[in-house]
Design a protein around this nucleic acid. Structure first.
Lengths: 221, 221
DNA sequence: CGCATTTTTGATTCTTATCAAGACGAGTGG
DNA sequence: CCACTCGTCTTGATAAGAATCAAAAATGCG
């Protein structure tokens, strides 16, 4: 059972572990920058993100950190979905979640694991073989897909705007870069008019086609 | 059903797709460097590697390639275990496989997917945050674990020898490096007496403790 | 309105990639 | 049996991309 239920409450840690007591589904709001402990020894509980943003990450003994995945609304998070002993998760903004009973939602869990694996494989290609600008372009497209403001206009083409819940440092840890390199790439994309932003956390994609070409490795800028 | 059954046969491609006809389990040997097509639209078939070595990889339009995972004896390979549309697989040596019925082995498939995800996450840490020598050390330990000669002596400490089915170029594509860098790192490890090899494809780990420290990021060589 | 944090930008360094030869080994055919 | 060739591996010299070091500028918060 979640150890945190009040709206807007902000205990330092949210535990996921429902040994026997299980009155699900249950909603909960978690403040920004709260660690989520994945202690589901029973594997009986998982979370669905209703709204907000969660980063799943691992770290090396000396502090080097890699963000494995960024989870937006709809994505699942639970014991089965990550290496419990080595992965950690944090909210990057105020996040609403609901607990789901894995026994009733077996298919959803299976799909979520498969999606996780698929994303991990795509990310391996990014980390192993893409240049810094390609990585940043890929990340922006992924984030746009997960966090785009659902406006009246179709998302497919034209401008897409989304809130970037990640700081430059978070992006760097996701993309295997440094925050300075991320900042330079974002500035370069802005100068090239592929994206636009006035405040650093509100990004608009202004040329999706070019951004996709860059992300796929077809462009050399 | 496998389109290849004879021992030692070497058709250019091995198809995995058993629509209705299914007399499993069935063994098969595949020559080295044969592509394995993962066409399991039905998701009803998977392979278990009995002996040998398979590389699962993805590539970018311009030829950049990343090996997502190296699969040794016991590992499973099938439609559920990779993005069918974007992943490819090749044998790196003569490889024996058996088909397994996924409906009868649901738990195995689930475990295999979870192992795949866990390994992908560990690999993301390697690709995103480890230095070249750390990557090579990590790879050698993983390969030793999957391919170690089962000798009388316990594997835990002392010398471990294994056949490196990967070329330097394969290692580079797995580790997000170039073949020259891999070769230099291997030479450096040899000079430091952490490993030994006379022929380039037969590696002996001579100081497992130091290699593990390096792989974990505790050493600075 | 300061103060702390994040972001941007610049100068320089360092790791790894790229380019370039050789060395080695396995297989082939004379 | 011995050149010859092809593919892989090793090693060296140089270049490039990203990291590091450093300092402002912008932003948000109390």
């Amino acid at each position: 059972m979640l150890n945190q239920t009040a709206l807007g409450a902000c205990a330092p840690v949210l535990l996921i572990d429902s040994p026997a007591e299980r009155r699900l589904p249950h909603q909960s709001r978690i403040a920004a920058h709260m660690p989520i402990l994945l202690l589901g020894a029973s594997r009986a509980t998982a979370l669905r993100i209703i709204d907000g943003c969660v980063a799943l990450y691992r770290e090396l003994a000396d502090g080097r950190r890699i963000i494995l995945d960024i989870l937006g609304p709809g994505r699942l998070l639970g014991a089965d979905l990550a290496d419990i002993h080595q992965c950690k998760a944090v909210t990057l903004t105020l996040t609403s979640v609901e607990t789901i009973d894995t026994e009733r939602a077996l298919a959803s869990i299976g799909n979520a694991i498969r999606e996780m694996l698929l994303r991990a494989q795509a990310h391996a290609l990014l980390l192993g073989r893409k240049t810094a600008p390609e990585r940043v372009a890929t990340a922006l497209l992924d984030l746009a897909h997960q966090f785009a403001r659902k406006s009246g206009a179709p998302l497919a083409r034209g401008r897409t705007t989304f809130t970037l819940y990640l700081t430059r440092a978070d992006l760097a840890d996701w993309l295997g870069l440094t925050l300075e390199t991320v900042s330079r790439c974002l500035s370069a994309l802005k100068r090239s008019r592929l994206i636009a932003f006035d405040r650093p956390e509100l990004i608009t994609i202004t040329d999706r086609t070019a951004l996709e070409a860059l992300a796929a490795g077809h462009l050399h800028a």
